Simulated scan of single mutants.
Amino acid sequence: MKRCFLWTLTLLVSVVLVVPTQAQEEKFIKRKVAIGRFTNETQYAKGLFYDKENDPMQKQAMDILSSKLAASGKFILLERDDLDVLMAEAGENMQKIGADYIILGSITEFGRKTEGQQKVFSSTKTQTVEAGVSIRLVEASTGLIIYSDEAKGFAETTTKQSLGLGGAAGFDATLSDKAISSALGQLVENIIDKCVDKPWRSYVLSIDDGTYIISGGASQGIAASDSFVVYAKGKTVTNPQTGIKIELPGKKIGTVTVLQTLGDTPETEISLCSYEGEPLDSNKLSNYYISDK
């Protein structure tokens, strides 16, 4: 009886230990994200010699958003200085940009104020900065906005002097960073959720002697022996009320299995694959896509 009890206990422990190991092996493909058109729509600090291309607040917001997205470990951020030009050239076909998603943002509100209170033996000064940020998330494969929202952030600092002792309330330049960061922080989680919840997509670039070359590689987490589903694109229809084009669900026609990954940068990475399934038309490869779900 004692031996039976010990054997049962060992079996239970083994089952408990296996479950988290399987969860850790779940595959996740990092999404490629490009940030562009983050503009400053406010009038703050826009003097006679204001340079729109070198707006410090615009750069602040882009740097803060990039840092927050990178810290999540779920994205590859593409540095595209020519993104505006590429978007104009691509039109509806934003796949040419090389990103899964494009983030468009703007600083919609910004204000700074200083308030003080003077008493007989003490004085206080409070500096407050308020910033409003608007974000749109565009899916490059469809050109549709899949998330749009705005948020406000606040930051303040207070200094106090008693009988002439204490800190002086000098200009605190870090408050603008903190206010913008606070506003973006309210939106980043939603951006991450929207990107991660949607299936990852890749495309067949070429078929060469039975080897299927797809976009994406090691930096996204793709490795040899990984398998993905191949779909024939669904029909595209237009909603007559909105004029928006909608791609209907695709049809599963096969699977690709990664043999090798190549490429030096996220933009140039490719994977060489084998394929099993219905024959693909090599002259119409744009009619197919690859997904992790």
Rank of each mutant, 00 (worst) to 15 (best):
M1D: 05
M1H: 09
C4I: 09
T10E: 04
L11E: 06
V13W: 13
S14G: 08
V16T: 09
V16L: 12
Q24N: 07
Q24R: 06
E26D: 06
K27D: 06
F28N: 10
I29D: 06
A34I: 12
A34P: 10
G36V: 14
R37W: 11
F38P: 04
E41W: 13
T42E: 13
T42M: 13
G47L: 12
G47W: 13
L48A: 14
F49P: 00
Y50A: 09
D51W: 10
K52T: 12
E53A: 15
N54A: 11
M57D: 11
Q58H: 08
K59Q: 15
Q60N: 15
I64P: 01
L65M: 13
S66W: 04
A70M: 11
S72Q: 07
S72M: 04
G73L: 05
K74C: 02
K74E: 11
I76M: 03
E79N: 11
R80H: 05
D81I: 00
D84I: 04
Q95G: 02
K96S: 11
G98Y: 07
G98H: 06
G98P: 01
G98V: 03
Y101E: 07
G105V: 07
G105I: 04
T108M: 05
E109K: 12
E109P: 01
E109Q: 14
G116N: 09
G116M: 04
Q118W: 02
K119G: 08
T126Y: 00
T128Y: 00
V129C: 01
A131W: 00
V138C: 03
V138W: 03
S141F: 06
L144Y: 05
L144S: 11
I145T: 15
I145F: 07
I145Y: 06
Y147K: 10
S148E: 15
K152L: 12
A155G: 12
E156Q: 15
T157D: 15
T158R: 15
K160M: 15
S162F: 15
L163H: 14
G164S: 13
L165W: 14
A168K: 14
S176N: 12
S176D: 08
K178V: 01
A179T: 03
I180W: 03
I180D: 01
A183F: 01
P199H: 05
W200F: 09
V204E: 07
I207W: 03
D208R: 13
G210E: 06
T211Y: 07
I213Q: 10
I213F: 05
S215G: 13
G217W: 07
A218G: 07
Q220G: 10
Q220S: 14
G221P: 07
I222E: 09
F228H: 05
G234C: 05
T236M: 04
V237L: 08
T238P: 02
N239W: 04
P240L: 09
T242H: 11
K245Y: 08
E247I: 10
L259A: 10
L262Q: 13
T268S: 13
E269R: 12
S271N: 06
L272C: 08
S274C: 02
E276F: 04
E278Q: 12
E278P: 01
E278H: 04
P279R: 05
D281R: 04
N283S: 05
K284C: 00
Y289V: 00
I290R: 01
S291Q: 01
S291H: 01
D292K: 00
